[in-house]
Each structure stands twice: as C-alpha cells, then as structure tokens.
C-alpha cells in the first residue's frame, strides 16, 4: 500500500501490466504491479495465454478517487485481463467526482483480451471513466465494457464513459456515453437508453478485417454488430439488466466467428 497516495478527498491508485512473448510460445509478465483497490493476480492461463485478474482490495472508486490502469501487450504476448468482481462507483465524502483511466497498448503480433466485469454506477456516485486503446496495425483486441445504471431498484449515479480506439495511429472509434442525474438532456429518452438500465460495448480488432470486413447485423432488437471504418467491429447493446446485457453481447459476438 506504500504507493497509494491519498489525494485531497480521495485515493490515487494505479496498476501496470506489461506482457511479452517469452520466446517459447508462451507469454511472460515482466511487470505486474497493482496496489490497494487495483491489486493484480496472475491466474492459470491456457496455452500461450497469460491471465491476469484485477482483485479490488477495497470498494471504489469513491468520489475524489483517481484510478489508473496501464496494460501493454508487446510482440508475441497473448494476454487476458479480467476482474474478480464488478466495479462499484460510489459517492464519496465530498462532492468531488471520481476518475478511472484505462490505457491499453497492443503491439504488432500481440493480442489483448480486456474483459472486466461490469461497472455499476450506484446512486449519488459521479464517475468519469476513460478507456484509451492504442493498437499497432498487426495487433488483435477483444474489449468488453458493461455499465449497469444503479444497483437493484436504485436511481443511477452520474457516469461519463469515453472509449477511444486507435489503430496504427488512426482513431477508428470515439464514443462517449453520459447518463444519470446532470447528464446531457434526453440520455434516457427514445434516442438514448429508453429506460434500459444496462448498456455495453464489445470492440473486436483483427488485422484480417482489413481484407475481409465483418458483416454487420442486428441481434434480437437490443444489439447490433457494426463494422467500423477500419479493421474493427463494435458490438453495441442495451438491456434491462446486466445479465441480459451479457447474453446479448455474447450472442451478437458469435456472428463474428
């Protein structure tokens, strides 16, 4: 816990993972550093893949907290990062908002699966999440983000989530979702979420999409597979709750295989 610094009104914490091919067909993790709420564990992988779990040692982020996660997959790495539980955004002691910044970098010949459990925006919380992904032209990515607005029967907190994906320096996806009290008007209306309380996205980047773009499709009304302007596809879904959201995302993803 020595590197956890308490900012005025909140906790600053960071986690870093660096993965690279070990030259024997496996994946080495020369850097695996987490702290406090962002503790990391290496778990049993399969084949060439290394697996890492984010295991939150305390709840959060709370108002005023600032978390940073930095994951780099270097050439030859196959890395899968998950989380042991949902992340719960909670109100803090003071009125300050919380920040959670995720930065993912994937080099040529590397693959990253970023599959955390859902983010729950509890009533009264205020979180700004940014996920920024930089991929080399020959990198592969599977990224899932799920947001659940409010715990059962609860009004959601304020959540702003921005997801940016660059491939070979070119931005192919830049999306921001704002919801909860104080969000830009109409966020829960017929154009936004229309009362749905779970919203999620999956980004799939594969170099072979450059020559063979994936087909788009609509899956059960609430989800769509959308080829992006680059070798990538986005699955976007809304659902009444987190369970049904996961089912929609998983179901729609099948069309890409």
């Amino acid at each position: 816990m020595d590197r956890v610094t308490t900012a005025p009104g909140g906790v600053r914490a960071s986690a870093r993972v660096l993965a690279r091919g070990d030259g024997r067909g496996g994946t080495a993790l020369p850097v695996l550093e987490g702290e406090g709420p962002l503790a990391l564990r290496r778990t049993r992988g399969s084949g060439a893949e290394a697996r890492v779990m984010l295991v939150g040692a305390m709840s959060g982020p709370l108002g005023g907290d600032h978390f940073t996660v930095d994951v780099q997959a270097r050439s030859g790495a196959r890395l899968r990062v998950g989380s042991a539980a949902a992340t719960l955004a909670l109100p803090g002691q003071d009125k300050a908002g919380a920040r959670y910044d995720v930065r993912l970098t994937v080099d040529d010949g590397a693959e990253l699966c970023w599959l955390p459990e859902q983010l729950i925006s509890a009533g009264g919380s205020d979180l700004r999440l940014t996920t920024s992904v930089d991929l080399a032209a020959g990198a592969r990515l599977l990224l899932r983000e799920e947001q659940v607005l409010g715990r059962a029967g609860e009004e959601p907190g304020r959540l702003t989530s921005r997801l940016t994906v660059r491939i070979d320096g070119r931005c192919v996806l830049d999306q921001e979702l704002g919801c909860g009290p104080g969000a830009p008007g109409g966020w829960d209306g017929p154009a936004g979420l229309a009362g749905h309380r779970a919203v999620g996205q999956v980004v799939v980047v594969r170099p072979e999409f450059a020559d063979r773009p994936p087909a788009g499709c609509v899956y059960e009304e609430g989800a769509a597979v959308m080829p992006l302007a680059g070798p990538a596809a986005l699955v976007s879904a809304v659902a009444p709750d987190g369970l049904r959201l996961r089912r929609l995302l998983d179901g729609a993803l099948v069309s890409l295989d």
Binding site: Q175, W187, A191, V199, V218, G222, A224, A237
Partner: peptide
C-alpha cells in the same frame, strides 16, 4: 464524442 446507443442500434 457523445453517443446515443439506441440511435446507432436503431439505424442498423
């Protein structure tokens, strides 16, 4: 980069 999920899904 503000987005409206149902505008995108609905358009598809």
């Amino acid at each position: 980069a503000r987005s409206a999920p149902l505008l995108e899904i609905g358009a598809e």
